[in-house]
Amino acid sequence: MGTCSDGGTDAGLSTGTGTGTGDEVDGSGGAHDAPVLAPIPGALIARSGARTAAALLGELSDRLRGLGAVTPGFRDAVIAREESYPTGLPTVIGTAIPHTDPEHVRVPGVAVATLAAPVEFRQMGAPAQTVAVRLVVMLVLDADGLHTQPLRLQRLIGRLQDEAAVTEVLAAHDDADLTARVSGWLAGGA
């Protein structure tokens, strides 16, 4: 894991294929030992109509701000970080994992959005390329969560490789349904 010039981190994520369980990641306990990423109640948006990456990041950030989960500066910080360090992943179903620095976080967890139509995000590690994203998992990590960030990201990447499970998440028809599906998916169920 390297440090970005903005002080953030780049976990050096791989989007290579595996079993899709996240259990194939190992090295310091393995991804199966990583803490489960928990959705922040009220911070899930099913079938967002956003048409750009910035609009979607703004929508999720505003939802988080309304819940008191992030500071007023979170929105601008996450959009700026995405511009400098893109998070689009060419997983089996295009996904983005935007995040920013922990000083903007009051309540840690994840915010999740599915999209009514794919939105282009620049690709992590290859910013000249884009990914048609259908799922966004915004990491909302505080300073206490930074030491487990690499394992959390590895586990998330493993879950994103499970096409059937991601397709099930994308089928959510409203925010409550999305919350239930995401909770099970991130915990390792379908």
Rank of each mutant, 00 (worst) to 15 (best):
A50N: 04
T91K: 08
E59L: 01
F74Y: 12
R63Y: 00
A46C: 14
A77K: 09
L37Y: 02
L44V: 04
P41D: 14
L64H: 01
V78Y: 01
T87A: 06
P39A: 11
R63F: 00
A34W: 05
T71K: 14
D62V: 13
P41S: 07
L57G: 00
P39H: 03
G49V: 09
L37F: 04
T52Y: 07
G49K: 10
P90C: 12
A54H: 02
T87S: 14
A34N: 12
R51L: 11
R47E: 13
R65F: 14
A53H: 15
P72V: 11
A77M: 10
T87F: 03
L37W: 08
G88Y: 10
E59M: 01
L44M: 14
L56R: 02
L89F: 11
P86Q: 14
G66V: 06
G68E: 11
I40K: 04
R81V: 15
A54K: 09
P72K: 09
T52G: 05
A80L: 04
P86L: 13
A50D: 01
I93H: 04
E83T: 10
A55N: 10
S84T: 15
A43V: 07
F74N: 03
I93M: 15
A50L: 10
A96W: 06
V78R: 00
I93E: 06
L60F: 06
T91S: 13
L44D: 06
